[in-house]
Amino acid sequence: MSVLGRDAIHDLLANRTLVVTPLLQPDQIQDASIDVRLGNEFIVIRKTRISSLSFEKKNRETFGRQLHKYQTRTRIEYGEGFVLHPGQLVLGSTLEYIRLPADIAAYVIGKSSWGRMGLIIATATAVAPGYCGTPTLEIINLGEIPLMVHPGLRIAQLVLHRCEGARPYEGRYAYTTGPGFSRICEDPELDFWLDPIRHRTIQKNTGTGIDASPGPSPSGP
């Protein structure tokens, strides 16, 4: 699939199938990407609250609670700085609210000017076609000294490309207006993969192969 260039991006914006709001400067539209800015809401890690993150067998809710204990939401005013220490991971989001057309997918990648200072902007980079919201940015300082970032600065870029046969995104991260906590504990497969042996036992006992607990969809394993 080809990456969309400046003119194609302009066309999509003009006919309102692609929305990037607010687009504050025309030069945010680059030759083959759109510069996006850092929002002012963050999810930071509270290292001292728990010893480690781990799924507990048979209880995915515990993991969800653990995650909220481990991470906390914080917001700074525009004009204030946010200090990222070496090795620190924070979740941020773009200042721009984005709506992709149903046939366009995107990648979020860092700006090289930040990358050269050790700042990695996104680790989970794919944005699904039809996505609507503020993409969450996983931001890590891989440099050796603390870095101060300011909300509003151009920190990443969206690379758009056409996508055939896609359906509009209606996933769990749609319509977000700030960084989102991980929802890995909502993965329906978790029940199985945390304890496959138990499911073999159920199959033997009932002879149906259908788990008694809620979880996997009919098309699941």
Binding site: L13, T21, P22, Q25, Y97, R99, Y175
Partner: peptide, 18 residues
């Protein structure tokens, strides 16, 4: 109604009028 924040009614202008 389209799932967009009503921060402006015309995004085609840069910068959009708030």
């Amino acid at each position: 109604n389209q799932g967009l924040p009503p921060n402006t009614d015309d995004d085609t202008k840069v910068p959009p009028a708030p």
